[in-house]
Nucleic acid binder design. Structure first.
Lengths: 254, 254
DNA sequence: TCAGCATCAG
DNA sequence: CTGATGCTGA
């Protein structure tokens, strides 16, 4: 038996929304410690890892490990049947082929039960090595989203250069070019930890897809190191996160 | 001479909006007692009946019975030319081929006159037998609309099961299934009168089209009986109503 | 013809 | 931030 209850569906909607474009189907791995997900995106270029530890939930019970294969678009459709302030309980019997979702309205006048068919998905379990990033940047998540959106106008590729002086995002193409530099401000909304300066180039469309998670967190953490995938991490309420990984382009700034 | 005046066009807009999708053209039957409408929907599956008794109007005069054949989409276009708080007077001479509409602004600074061409429509006059429903449910109209919308995600068919314990709406399909149960709550926003429990299956798309009337009334009345069309009734300001009727599906819960 | 997207108003 | 509407692509 697996059962987990959240006080509001809004958080779950945001999480699924942050995943569903990049991952049409995926497996949730539920264990006593919480819920994990890890997968390559649909085009097998970037990688997503999500973790919600049991502390994220109002109630959490997982008698034995279960893997729940879900179609995330379908899950989103079901979540749309709930109001944002409904409490949601997801549950599955052992070896179930259905996920149960129960929505309870704030005043408890209304209960709606949904079942979502589970899928048997191939598990591509990827070990993500802990990386010692040469640069770690924290910045407002909306700012990161804004930059990714703006740079997409100029080029498919985005160059990120980070040093002690700041982090610079650049794109250039037919239209012209763009350079956005952020340095550590007194307000402390940008922070840099730089062991060694790094300059890397990434495909902007993936960066943009990562920003679907913007509403989950005020701050985003970016980790950079030479020849290692970029890390873009959005914390989820103290006890969880979504991490996106994207390998740098070998060359070819267009 | 026929003439009827409403203090605000908003009500009339809501009524036409509740009819125009389901009934592209229809005949208003005007008599001394008020205005009636009764017709099959465009696809001849469901049936709509509207009644506005003369008490609904600020002023009402109908010297002799007239039938006004209207294109409801065109009528809606004309109504969009009025502000919601304009007073509206509709009138027609005997044997007229035009409907007159006059909009007067609240302060009377502005008067606008419109004429709408009338149509000669075939009258399919259907007697609707008074039915003694086995179950009558009153519930918030927004809640009903919400349920119909949510269930449409899962299946074309909606099963409604009503007993003394509550009314249950269910749909199931490829994605999964949904069950929403309402029972009489302490707040009294759901009430059930059950002579005999009933379970019936309906085509969800028609239920959804009925909910275009949601803004007319806070509460909707649902009448159910075996082998008899479902009744969905929205009261209109104490002296009128829109009733929708839909025959149950014979079988085939998909 | 319908579903999804995007935009807009409350 | 949510619901509603209009558009566009499948």
């Amino acid at each position: 038996m697996f059962e987990a209850r959240l006080g509001s569906t809004t958080l779950l909607k945001k999480i699924v929304d942050a995943l569903k474009e990049i991952l049409s189907q995926s497996t949730l791995d539920c264990s006593a410690s919480g819920i994990q997900l890890q997968a390559m995106d649909n085009s097998h270029v970037s990688l997503v890892a999500m973790s919600l530890s049991r502390e994220c939930f109002e109630r959490y019970r997982c008698d034995r490990n279960v893997s729940l294969g879900l179609d995330l678009k379908s899950l989103m459709k079901v979540l749309k049947c709930a109001s944002g302030d409904d409490a949601v309980t997801i549950s599955a019997a052992d070896k179930a082929d259905k996920l149960q979702l129960r929505f309870e309205s704030a005043g408890n006048e209304r209960t709606a039960d949904y079942e979502l068919r589970l899928l048997n998905l191939e598990q591509d379990h990827l070990a993500i090595p802990e990386t010692d990033y040469a640069c770690i940047v924290h910045m407002p998540s909306t700012e990161f989203a804004r930059i990714c959106r703006d740079l997409a106008t100029f080029s498919e590729s985005v160059v990120i250069a980070c040093s002690k002086d700041g982090i610079k995002f650049s794109a250039s193409g037919e239209l012209g070019s763009a350079n956005i530099t952020l340095s550590e401000t007194s307000k402390g909304d940008v922070s840099l930890q730089v062991e060694e300066p790094v300059t890397l180039c990434f495909a902007g469309r993936y960066l943009n897809s990562f920003t679907r998670a913007t509403s989950l967190a005020d701050k985003v953490k970016i980790g950079l190191a030479a020849d290692v995938p970029l890390l873009v991490e959005y914390p989820i309420e103290d006890h969880g996160y979504i991490r996106y990984y994207l390998a740098p382009k070998v060359d070819d700034p267009d």
